[in-house]
């Protein structure tokens, strides 16, 4: 099957991990500035999976409802990026971002705004870094906050016959004294993934040169 044929080679995976790590590294420093506390983000693993599989990966791990910040991107390759948290984590994140002083009411009010901002920082850092490193430009939409289960987030209901692929990045979040974890998922169709693979190869050729 064609859709299964998009797999990344070892160097491609290294390169993409490196690139995304630069992105989350930037995101971490931005968050550090926002939270004023030690934040470590790293991307230890990258997978390309089907949309259904991605939904299952998350639902197996996270029983609770989820919150996601969504940003669509378009350019050399197109897709939709999701920063996903368990809903119970999101307030914790909001509290971390906004400080301890807010009441629960204010916190709830601030939630959307804080999540949008956090998501924007992280997703933007990643996407912009990828685009930058691959010497392409990507246009990004304004982030949106979604609530729902993993099936809803991955729009499985609307994709009956077309099961798109997802570039699935696990991120280890470590925010001191906070229980926060999350995932980044980039939903792309096969042509977009093929394009990404191609650009990664270009990048590798460029930095590795004759050693490749």
């Amino acid at each position: 099957m064609i859709r299964d044929s998009v797999t990344l080679g070892e160097l491609e995976r290294d390169a993409l991990t490196e690139i995304v790590n630069i992105g989350v590294g930037r995101a971490a420093s931005s968050l550090r500035k926002m939270i004023g506390d030690q934040v470590t983000l790293s991307v230890p693993a990258i997978d390309i999976v089907s949309q259904r599989r991605a939904a299952r990966l998350i639902s197996e791990r996270e029983a609770a409802e989820l919150v996601a910040v969504r940003q669509d991107f378009d350019g050399a390759f197109a897709g939709r990026a999701l920063l996903i948290f368990p809903e119970s984590n999101s307030l914790e994140l909001v509290r971390a971002v906004t400080g301890e002083s807010l009441s629960a009411e204010d916190l709830a009010e601030m939630e959307r705004e804080a999540l949008t901002e956090t998501g924007n920082v992280i997703l933007n850092s990643c996407l912009a870094t990828i685009a930058n490193m691959l010497k392409r430009s990507l246009a990004m939409t304004i982030p949106e906050v979604l609530h729902g289960n993993s099936a809803a987030l991955f729009e499985i209901e609307n994709a009956e016959d077309e099961d798109g692929l997802v570039l699935f990045l696990y991120i280890d979040f470590a925010v001191r004294k906070r229980d926060i974890r999350g995932y980044i998922a980039m939903i792309m169709d096969i042509p977009s993934l093929e394009k990404l693979k191609e650009l990664l190869d270009e990048f590798i050729a460029r930095v590795v040169g004759d050693d490749g």
Partner: peptide, 18 residues
């Protein structure tokens, strides 16, 4: 090992922290 290290260094030159 060289390609791997080149990629990592490219990351550093592009703004990776560590």
């Amino acid at each position: 090992d060289r390609p791997r290290i080149r990629i990592a260094v490219a990351g550093m030159l592009a703004g990776a922290e560590r």
